[in-house]
């Protein structure tokens, strides 16, 4: 948020200097035979072709079912995701909830800077973007630091998705991406997906939707890394989540439900 404020101040200063710059523009226009007008049209065209920003909500599961190797892979993948963030993107890091919304879990929100002059990326903008990415990458080890993360036996995916839904709802006109670094095994007193021991009934999603108890994930592209669809139980779990996300308005492609992280960041 601090970077956004700084950019706002700089933009304000730039507008204040706009009048003064007009003189230089006029000089330039005179020198180039109307390049100022062409510059204005270029700016409007850039406004129209401005790339849509996105909100990436990454949920990291530190439950006991997650192996340290899986956590490490999740961290490396997150670093790649951070490296792919662009101007105006927002990254939300969420630690998986364990037993309801009252849990105290780690969270981290970082807005990446937008170009000072929309549509015209300068070296300053690039430096600011790199600085923001660098800040997130520097902060990422803390998120995975065992000193601050407790490994607990329960996993409350439903509550976590509600929280993630709220973050995605704040994205407004941005593209939404939900990255879940988890085995997708809900483990609460009510449900136990491990071994499909206490799976919800088939009408559970429909009833939850009827009761308006599902999170709103409209338009969100869901990527799941760490879930095992290779077993029968895993296939059942996958079907459940496919039905669930479909009910929430999100899109979970079959290829985005993965056990191992891909080499490159999955594109939605």
């Amino acid at each position: 948020m601090t970077g956004r404020l700084a950019n706002t101040r700089i933009a304000a200063r730039r507008r204040a200097l706009g009048c003064l710059s007009a003189f230089a523009c006029a000089l330039a226009a005179a020198a180039c035979g109307g390049s100022g007008a062409s510059g204005a049209s270029t700016e409007s065209a850039a406004e129209e072709s401005r790339p849509v920003t996105r909100t990436v909500v990454a949920v990291v599961d530190f439950s006991a079912s997650q192996t340290s190797h899986a956590v490490g892979e999740a961290r490396h993948y997150l670093e790649k995701v951070v490296g792919g963030l662009d101007y105006g993107d927002r990254l939300v890091l969420l630690e998986m909830y364990r037993s309801g919304s009252r849990d105290s879990v780690g969270s981290f929100v970082q807005d990446l800077p937008t170009p000072v002059r929309p549509g015209a990326v300068t070296s300053y903008d690039r430096r600011e973007l790199d600085a923001a990415r660098r800040g997130v990458l520097n902060a990422l080890p803390i998120f995975f630091d065992p000193r601050f993360v407790r490994s607990v036996p329960t996993t409350d995916l439903f509550t976590t998705l509600h929280i993630a839904g709220e973050h995605l709802r704040d994205a407004r006109d941005q593209e939404r991406e939900l990255l879940i670094l988890s085995d997708m095994l809900q483990s609460t007193p009510a449900f136990e997906f491990e071994g499909a021991r206490r799976m919800p009934p088939d009408t559970w999603v429909e009833s939850q939707e009827t009761q308006d108890r599902l999170p709103s994930l409209d338009g969100a592209c869901v990527v799941v890394i760490g879930a095992d669809p290779t077993t029968a139980h895993g296939q059942r779990v996958r079907r459940f989540w496919s039905e669930y996300f479909a009910a929430t308005g999100a899109a979970l492609d079959a290829g985005n439900y993965r056990l191992r992280p891909p080499t490159d960041v999955v594109a939605c």
């Binding site: 890091l93 430096r127 600011e128 923001a132 800040g135 997130v136 520097n138 080890p141 630091d145």
Partner: peptide, 23 residues
């Protein structure tokens, strides 16, 4: 300051301060 924030586990502060360094 970054080292202090890292020690304290303040991700936001670490990210904010780290982002200032390139400038």
């Amino acid at each position: 300051q970054v080292a202090g924030a890292t020690e304290a586990g303040d991700m936001n502060e670490v990210a904010r301060l780290s982002a200032l360094r390139p400038a």
